[in-house]
């Protein structure tokens, strides 16, 4: 049995071990992976850049801790950019396990903005977190009429009317756009209700698996931007010139893909050799 045939019959634990080694090595090596910026990610960046200071955007952080690795980099990059530009952010988290994680992310980002932009972000003046309510479809629909219908108070039980930045803000018509980061099928509700019914400009950040299914909405204009998975997050980090977890992860992803491809090719060579030997016999 030659080397190719051996590899084609390799115990899967060797594959896991080699993959783990590749991941560890690429994490330790610090270099920037070249990344091409796609137009759909640039649209989201340009949207945030175009907003004048003091304008409002809605960040919908609708994902669970399981998707954190792919989604957090997008959330961090966008919110840091927005807060550094002095935009005001209304945050919701319509995923059952999401609110605690979203709150933690908000606090981290507020600290990070202070460090990178020298700006003190004040809760209630620059950012407000409304929290979670069940039945995402009904909540999304009702926010189009008035935020207070589903969220009479914020995550900390402060009535919305007594929060500075929510005075005079009623519904989607008062925010310049919605950026949704999600790994669930709740994106369909946002597209149907927030954009379809209320014409709110909508951009989405999705997991890699889901992103491919939502390009038709991008082409039809129902969403103005689309960030897909880790690559989308890395592209955004490159645009905001703040390399973070996504760009590090792209380094890992590229090399693990190369290793998997090599395994597949070698495995097939081994398989074809074995098959040929069998035919010759």
């Amino acid at each position: 049995m030659n080397i190719f045939e051996r590899i084609s019959r390799l115990d899967r634990r060797w594959i896991y071990l080699i993959l783990a080694a590749v991941v560890v090595i690429t994490v330790m090596l610090k270099y920037e992976t070249p990344i091409r910026i796609s137009p759909e990610v640039r649209s989201v960046y340009d949207f945030v850049e175009a907003q004048p200071p003091g304008s409002y955007i809605h960040m919908a952080i609708d994902y669970d801790p399981g998707s954190l690795a792919e989604m957090h980099p997008m959330t961090y990059a966008i919110m840091e950019q927005a807060l550094c530009r002095k935009l005001k952010i209304i945050m919701t988290a319509l995923s059952p396990n999401g609110p605690g994680m979203a709150e933690q992310a908000m606090l981290d980002i507020m600290d990070s903005v202070k460090m990178h932009c020298g700006r003190e972000v004040v809760y209630g003046k620059d950012i407000v977190f409304l929290g979670y309510k069940p039945y995402p479809g009904i909540v999304i629909l009702s926010m189009g009429q008035n935020y207070r219908l589903s969220f009479p108070s914020d995550y900390y039980n402060t009535p919305l009317d007594s929060i500075d930045m929510m005075k005079g803000i009623a519904n989607y018509g008062d925010v310049n756009g919605i950026i949704l980061i999600t790994g669930t099928s709740g994106v369909d509700y946002w597209i149907s209700y927030a954009n379809g019914r209320y014409n709110a400009p909508l951009a989405v950040g999705l997991t890699g698996v889901m992103a491919a299914d939502y390009y038709p909405y991008l082409r039809s204009g129902q969403i103005f931007g689309l960030m897909g998975g880790m690559l989308g997050a890395a592209e955004y980090e490159k645009l905001v010139k703040r390399p973070g977890r996504a760009m590090e992860a792209m380094r890992v992803q590229v090399w693990t893909h190369i290793v998997i491809i090599l395994f597949i090719i070698i495995g097939n060579i081994g398989y074809l050799i074995s098959r040929r030997k069998g035919e010759v016999k």
Binding site: R12, I15, P65, A69, M101, T256, L272
Partner: peptide
Amino acid sequence: FDYVMIPLHATMFSLLAFFIASAAFRAFRA
């Protein structure tokens, strides 16, 4: 929640990377 549940969820999801590799290695044969 932050130091047990979230990392455990993320870890289980991350296993997919390894399983995709082994599944692809096994399944993608000509």
